[in-house]
Simulated scan of single mutants.
Amino acid sequence: MNDARPPRGIFITLEGGEGVGKSTQIRLLADALRQRGLEVVETREPGGTEGAEAIRALLLGGAADRWNAQAEALLFAAARADHVARVIRPALDRGAWVLCDRFIDSNRAYQAGASGLADEDIMAAHKIGSGGLMPDRTLLLTLPLNVAAERAAQRDAGRADRFGARGHSFHEAVSAAFLMLAAREPERIRIVDAADSAEAVSSRIFEALGDLLS
């Protein structure tokens, strides 16, 4: 009897500020991978499970000052712990590709880089809650802030969430934090210019995943 376990799946995250097109690119990438016969799980953070989606509503709704940075970080860590345990790890264990719209690097950019917490504290909470799970590849979509703000405004139709509604200086700090993380971890985090058509950006994403697809 062959009881060999299937090879571990591949964990891909898409990151970036508001309005860079992460959701669109996850859909396009998932379609392309399924055409290759791969099992693909599409998910998002915060969210992905019933409990994590409930925490998402708490995090994204309400006034800008509803939570301070410390409370936000702990809520994100709690949502992720459930998401990793119930969705991400089981999918990876059965050999699936997991595509996640945001993961730990968003917390590192938003709560540490832009909100003043220490990166090591964010990572410590991640280690406790999610066993320190990191993506195999992170695709950082980038756009000039003014272009991203216009796209986000069109998407949100005047109903931005607590993070999207923050001012230009906050989003500038988020963008700088993402780029700093990419400079620190170039093997994992690949920068993808998201300024062109969805199809052109999708092609760049596939290029950035070439070694994992071979």
Rank of each mutant, 00 (worst) to 15 (best):
G95Q: 08
G210I: 07
I128T: 12
A173W: 06
L139M: 09
M123R: 13
R162I: 13
G131R: 11
T138P: 01
L29E: 00
A63L: 11
R204V: 07
E199C: 05
R155K: 12
A195L: 06
R36I: 03
R166A: 03
G48P: 00
R89D: 13
S106M: 10
R190D: 00
P46E: 03
L74W: 03
A177F: 00
A149M: 08
R5K: 14
G167L: 09
A52R: 01
I205M: 12
A148M: 09
D136R: 09
R155P: 02
A183Y: 01
G167Y: 08
R188K: 11
T142L: 13
L179C: 05
F103Q: 05
D82W: 05
L14N: 03
G48Y: 00
N107H: 04
G129V: 02
R102N: 09
V174H: 01
I205E: 07
A4Y: 08
A63D: 14
E150I: 09
P186K: 08
L145A: 12
L92K: 10
A78N: 06
D196M: 11
A149E: 14
A109S: 11
R94C: 14
G113A: 09
A124Y: 06
F170H: 02
Q111A: 06
L14E: 00
D211T: 15
G61S: 13
T142P: 05
A198E: 14
G129C: 15
V84P: 03
T142A: 11
L59E: 04
R102P: 06
T138C: 10
